[in-house]
Design a protein around this nucleic acid. Structure first.
Lengths: 328, 328
DNA sequence: TTTTCATTTGAAAACCCTTACAATTTTCAT
DNA sequence: ATGAAAATTGTAAGGGTTTTCAAATGAAAA
């Protein structure tokens, strides 16, 4: 059995209240007792029962993380960094993979509330809007546009789409194709698509659009991409995420298209992983470090109610990472 | 404020004890009261305070997941699958990225115990052995060899190393190199290395070994690999993980070595990600689905004390995925 | 009718901690 | 030396739930 406050108190020869005070560094304490208590705690390898603390009004120091799938490199990176920062701040992270499934997301939400999490960082659907609102919890959203007052952080998806289009056209592509890696219902994606199309139309050009679904297997996606590539023979493709762009690159090559001479490709996300391990792929890079910093900062700000001036909506700039899949 | 048991009781016109009994389906209950209570719970959207429950001996239904880094595709995949299965079983997952840092791992362990997790699945160091033992918690380990009675699941690392060596030699490589992606202190890695070296020596061949460190940046790893490749000019390389193998492939190519003619490369892990998005890389594939199933099954078995006959040690077979980085 | 026993319910203790309050000791200005 | 204020410690209540125990009801058996 884990040692309790009482055990520590007995060993240190003080009352439980004193031990509690030492732990929470509260009120007056002589350095002598402090030392004795620390000693005893160390000796017993004591750590307070968080259930009991939570019951007495202290929080659990628990944050829910809801994302579509941690298998996506950018999300993995974000989760990793978020978890790190939370840990620094003394918080734990409960992980939830919604798989972009609204029902599952709703279940998660309910579970998180029942578990008294202190807050939620979500990068998933927002169909469960009611629940989010009702929860009364501090919530921060990544790349999903919640209505005020839920703060949202995202990169400038529209600008990214535009940048992709203009880059392709500047570098000589004329038959453009857009491959949307997941439903356009998701506003983030819709913005990337809209930004791209707008820029294309602005100069009187055209482009076809291919729509894949988030939950399609890579095999299915591959087949669809391959078919569209050979049917339409584009010379410039923008994919709304890097995974899709990688499939596109592969299929293009296996169709005998030369990259970047016959075909230029741009992806979106630019995780460290892709930057390191896919050196050919050009992509629109999200400033993921800044995004994570902001997400966590906003959350902490609400949790610790040190009311800094905070916006409801942060849009961070994207940048182009130009590599082999683009001409010089 | 969340509604409490008392609120439900008042609304249903019964005592708190009765409500609790309904929730836990315990003892005798008339169907009338049951219905009333359910009704009230629904009306108030009540869900029990898990802190209070935990205090009274119920478990939190919380599992700690300790891994080096969720940024590694294989780990991401494992975490994803584990989380899924836990969720099905009504459990939540707390995620811990130890970064292969024993101090951090120890902190996590302490934190998990303080948070009354019900069990732990760890794929990280085992330097904190004492803590693991002391915790008295159900623990299952992936790919780290804990002493009995902590059950350990892993793939056959030694056989994998051997398979890599024999494959390279069968396909004509004569100047072999082994690149160890992280410290050999980690037994998993040591086994891969040992298996490889054994197979090499068994036929009177030789190989050089390069040691990288887990926490080196990709840039540093890259530089070391490049230097060793050009210094030693191997014609067959086995890397103890896929990430390292990818770096090796890249550096080899940028040094002008032709793959697989001048140089054959084999990695280790074979995550879905690598299989899908790095179609050139040959690798030793871990049966990750089976591994995850087993990990979770063993854990549940201990949690729910339905004592199936279980071993302390499961070693699952690996397989070779042969692709472009190997000759036919 | 009385006795027995299964059912149904409620009152209250217990879980481990925090914190308001009270009690005691020390410090310091007068 | 005196009193007031500051510092230090302890006692006990309370937080939301589960669970033991006892009480109350009703039905069946004697």
């Amino acid at each position: 059995m884990q040692p309790k406050l009482k055990d520590v108190a007995k060993l240190a020869g003080v009352s439980v209240a004193t031990v509690s005070r030492v732990i929470n560094d509260r009120g007056y304490l002589s350095s002598g007792t402090k030392e004795k208590v620390y000693q005893a705690m160390r000796q017993l390898n004591y750590s307070p029962n968080s259930a009991a603390r939570a019951l007495r009004g202290k929080t659990f120091k628990l944050i829910g993380l809801i994302f579509a799938s941690v298998e996506n490199p950018l999300i993995a990176e974000a989760v990793q960094k978020i978890e790190n920062q939370l840990f620094e701040g003394g918080y734990k992270a409960i992980i939830c993979n919604s798989l972009d499934n609204p029902a599952k997301e709703q279940q998660y939400l309910k579970m998180l509330m029942a578990n008294q999490v202190d807050g939620i960082i979500t990068g998933s659907h927002n169909e469960s809007l009611k629940e989010y609102k009702m929860s009364g919890l501090p919530i921060v959203s990544y790349d999903r546009y919640f209505p005020s007052p839920i703060p949202t952080v995202s990169c400038d998806n529209a600008a990214g789409g535009k940048l992709a289009a203009n880059t392709l056209m500047d570098k000589g592509s004329e038959k453009l194709m857009l491959i949307s890696g997941s439903l356009e219902k998701i506003p983030r994606n819709a913005d990337r698509v809209a930004g791209f199309n707008q820029a294309v139309e602005a100069v009187g050009q055209k482009s076809t659009t291919v729509r894949l679904r988030f939950n399609d297997t890579p095999g299915i996606k591959r087949a669809m991409i391959r078919q569209q590539l050979s049917a339409y023979q584009p010379d410039g493709v923008f994919c709304t995420d890097d995974q899709t762009a990688l499939l596109c690159l592969q299929e293009a090559k296996s169709l005998g298209m030369k990259v970047p001479d016959d075909l230029q490709v741009i992806g979106f996300d630019g995780s460290q992983y892709v930057q390191q391990y896919h050196p050919e792929l050009s992509t629109i890079v999200q400033p993921i470090d800044d995004i994570v910093d902001l997400l966590v900062r906003i959350l902490f700000n609400r949790l610790e109610q040190n009311d800094d001036q905070l916006l409801d909506r942060y849009v961070l700039p994207v940048s182009l990472l130009q590599r082999g899949s683009l001409r010089n």
